[in-house]
Amino acid sequence: MKSQIFALLFAAAIIVGCRPASPANISEVTGTVTVDGKPADSATITFAPIPSGKSSYGRTDDAGHYHLVYTTDIEGALIGEHAVTIANEPAPGQATPAVMVPRQYGKAGKLTANVAPDQKNQIDFALTTKAK
């Protein structure tokens, strides 16, 4: 019995140990996107490091929630300042999202965000249809 328990614990340690660790320069990023107080569904959000670096991407769900991915194996974004773009223009044949993100937020320079080190970053975007 003890040998079976040991074998199970050993196997579990190997499986957990094989998962890729996030690099030290990446932090988790989640948040919510709203437009005039309503959740922006089916929106693509991009964090592009300033001045340069690999971008992270995410997509909002029906409640406007997103989480960023850096690669297929690593969630989050590079630590530091980012130019943020948010857009939900449907592709031909796709249903139009219930809440459309104004086109101005799909342009670089309109939004920025700072990803802090060693923590879970909650970065929300309360967008508006009114011109600023």
Rank of each mutant, 00 (worst) to 15 (best):
K2F: 12
S3T: 10
I5S: 12
I5C: 06
I5T: 12
F6A: 15
L8I: 13
L8W: 11
L9F: 15
F10V: 14
A12D: 08
A13I: 09
A13V: 10
I14A: 14
I14Y: 10
V16G: 07
C18W: 13
P23D: 14
S27G: 07
S27R: 06
S27W: 08
S27V: 06
E28R: 11
E28L: 11
T30Y: 06
T30M: 09
T30A: 09
T30C: 01
V33Q: 03
T34I: 03
G37I: 11
A43E: 04
T44E: 11
I45Q: 00
T46D: 04
T46H: 07
T46C: 02
F47T: 01
A48L: 12
A48S: 15
P49T: 05
I50D: 09
I50F: 07
S52L: 11
K54R: 15
S55V: 00
Y57N: 05
R59G: 07
T60G: 06
D62Q: 13
D62S: 15
D62T: 13
D62C: 04
H65K: 14
Y66S: 00
H67Y: 13
H67W: 09
L68N: 06
Y70A: 04
T71V: 01
T71K: 06
D73M: 15
I79F: 11
I79H: 09
G80I: 08
E81T: 11
E81M: 13
A83M: 10
V84C: 02
V84D: 03
T85H: 01
T85E: 01
I86F: 02
E89Q: 14
A91W: 01
A91N: 07
G93H: 01
A95I: 02
A95N: 03
T96D: 00
P97E: 03
R103H: 07
Q104D: 05
Y105A: 04
Y105L: 05
G106V: 05
G106K: 08
K107T: 14
K107Q: 15
G109D: 06
K110H: 13
L111I: 02
L111Q: 02
N114H: 12
N114Q: 14
V115F: 06
V115P: 03
N121P: 09
Q122D: 12
F125N: 02
T128D: 05
K130S: 13
K130V: 10
